[in-house]
Design a binder for these strands. Structure first.
Lengths: 200, 200
DNA sequence: TTTTATTGATTGATGAGTCAATCAAAAATA
DNA sequence: TATTTTTGATTGACTCATCAATCAATAAAA
């Protein structure tokens, strides 16, 4: 079977398998063998292409982040007004693929790993910044800058918090309810500023 | 040195050491040897008293939860009005001991472990329920029940989210700012209900 | 024939859990 | 009180399993 040009195919298969296995087991303490098995190759091949487990894991996170970024960009393009963009950013965070139990479990495992691996931490900081800045951009069109900062901070925290609560799978808040809760937070604050603005 | 009655002393020392080591390394993949070393005893003794690593970890989580509950009870006792109680619950979540990097890292590790261990998951569900119900009790005195439910849900999510964001140690939001953000969320929503109420 | 893809077998390290042995306090007995 | 027995506390050494990483060998293109 050895055809030439297998490298990108195998890399993708391994990264996808890694995400599956990590999500399934809810930990980064998964074996290279298991990942390789799921990808349909030997563990030795995984090492051949990635050099180390650490490297494979990092590529896996990168892949997850890339996916999220692409979805966000697409959603933002389709949105016209600031309100729509805001809604789009929130919506993407809770879209089915991101909010699936396995994906959440994987995110959680990555956050935990960030305590040890500087590179993983850096990647997650990129995610946090991106979320905050996407929210901020739209918010600044709707309220004063410093209020926008605070609201963006709060909304980002709420999104992450809904994730972590979802991971416990008790009193499961649905996708729509999560979106509603977050949008409610944002609009409620913007509204209040209007009232205060007219009152003052 | 073998005196009698060492068991409770050693158990506590081991549980405390476990929390320290887990917080420090940010993972449950810590060795019994290391925990024992920190507690000043041999790994064999840790096994003697706890039977297994899993069991020691569970006792450690229990200890953390107990601490949090006690602090909450104390804070609630000192609060008179519903507003004060609400504020107290929020404040306890962010009090220095809970919000310290090591403690947050430990929490994160436990959440991750909950994906695998049913017992760990159960314990964290207890925490989530308790937080929600503490918030709910005070909120119900301040607004209609179904609004209270939503606000409690949102506030709990925001608290957890601020934790997770804190764990990345980038753009570190301080304790006071976190409290302010959460209280702001709650009061803003209650206020809005009042406006709507008078307007309708 | 040279290069790329691929794997089985092996190695070396690590870590949980077990066990038999030791040591000293406490309790019982003389 | 002095001596023996019992029991709790404690550990070093060991076993057994797991796993990341390496390597030599093979097979099929180019």
């Amino acid at each position: 079977m050895p055809k030439v040009g297998m490298e990108p195919v195998r890399r993708k298969a391994l990264v996808d398998a890694a995400l599956r296995v990590i999500g399934d087991q809810g930990t980064l303490s998964v074996t290279m063998s298991e990942i390789a098995r799921q990808a349909g190759v030997s563990a030795a091949l995984a090492h051949h292409y990635f050099g180390s487990k650490e490297q494979l894991l990092i590529e896996t996170i990168r892949s997850l982040l890339r996916q999220l970024r692409d979805d966000t960009v697409t959603a933002l393009r389709a949105a016209a007004s600031a309100q729509e963009k805001l809604s789009a950013v929130i919506r993407v965070s809770f879209q089915a693929s991101q909010f699936a139990p396995d994906t959440i479990a994987a995110w959680l495992a990555f956050y935990s790993e960030a305590q040890r691996s500087e590179e993983v931490r850096r990647l997650l900081v990129v995610y946090a910044r991106r979320l905050r800045s996407n929210l901020l951009a739209s918010l600044k069109a709707l309220c004063p800058d410093d209020d926008a900062e605070r609201i963006a901070e709060g909304a980002a925290a709420m999104i992450d918090g809904l994730y972590i609560r979802q991971s416990l799978r008790s009193a499961p808040i649905g996708i729509e309810a999560s979106i509603a809760l977050t949008e409610d937070y944002v609009t409620s604050h913007i509204d209040r500023l209007k009232f205060q603005g007219t009152a003052a």
